[in-house]
Design a protein around this nucleic acid. Structure first.
Length: 257
DNA sequence: CCGGATGTTCACCT
DNA sequence: GAGGTGAACATCCG
């Protein structure tokens, strides 16, 4: 599930916890791994919730807690998921996969559900390793992140997925945005013209806004065609299926150049 | 049974 | 140093 749109939904879900004091944290090896000793978050008061890219940041009066949902993690507040009522609701009901429970002093309950155990919880994470958030990155920083003008052969998609350069985009969002922008994700990012860079950023913002409203990363126009032999929603030709930037990539051979 | 999946990290190559 | 590849994590789905 989680690319930045889903993580933003988690942030909104958990926002009401601002002001709450954490009474008790029960977790497996994700956080406060030692069986003996207290979790350093117990007794802390939540001051705010932020997000950079796919990282959800909980500011408390003692520490910052970094919550990363990995590939299959989602959060529940008093049993309610951020996706309840939405079209695409991950199965979050299986209690076997609750990896962390945090009880507030007022009785409210925050839980992390994560079948594949790819989620991570970090105390005082190093936020400086993340690039600017994709939804707010400036044009200059965007061009910088792509390495425009350099001689690097690295494909556009690899640059867009690189969380150190731009934070928040995942495999689905990148394919969707390259499709919408009509750009081949395998092209060297460094070779994009200034006009293309500007257009790509505009498309990125619009894709994030549209899919965010619609319900997440998997609500793009390309989503249903992301199968072997899938056809372009515009041209009807068979989509290209390749590995680009280490991830399975679908693109249209005709209108993405 | 096998392959692949929305993510990250690390070892190991070129 | 820069990139790429494959494995690992644990589970589900086609």
């Amino acid at each position: 599930m989680p690319e930045m749109l889903e993580v933003e939904a988690y942030r909104v879900l958990l926002e009401p916890l601002v002001g709450a004091t954490v009474a008790r944290v029960v977790a497996d090896d994700l956080v406060c791994g030692r069986p003996v000793g207290r979790c350093p978050i117990e007794g802390s008061t939540i001051l705010g919730l932020r997000r950079t890219g796919k990282l959800l940041l909980v500011d408390t009066d003692h520490h910052v807690v970094g919550l990363h949902a990995g590939m299959t993690g989602s959060f529940l507040l008093d049993g309610v998921s951020a996706f309840d009522g939405l079209r695409y609701a991950p199965a979050v009901a299986d209690r076997r996969f609750i990896r962390l429970s945090a009880t507030m002093a007022d009785g409210r309950l925050l839980e992390l559900h994560d079948p594949r155990r790819l989620a991570r919880v970090r105390i005082d994470p190093d936020e400086s390793v993340l690039g600017p958030d994709a939804s707010t990155i400036s044009l200059a920083d965007f061009a910088d992140a792509l390495g425009v003008g350099s001689t690097s052969p690295t494909p556009l998609k690899a640059r867009l997925l690189d969380q150190h350069r731009i934070a928040g985009l995942g495999n689905l969002l990148v394919d969707e945005l390259c499709f919408q922008a009509g750009v081949d994700p395998a092209r060297p990012a460094a070779g994009l013209s200034p006009d293309e860079v500007r257009a790509l950023r505009t498309q990125m913002r619009s894709t994030l806004r549209t899919l965010g409203r619609r319900g997440g990363s998997h609500t793009g126009i390309l989503q249903d065609a992301r199968v072997r032999g899938g056809t372009c929603p515009r041209c009807e030709v068979t989509l290209l299926r390749r590995t680009v930037g280490g991830r399975t990539t679908y693109s249209c051979p005709l209108h993405q150049r």
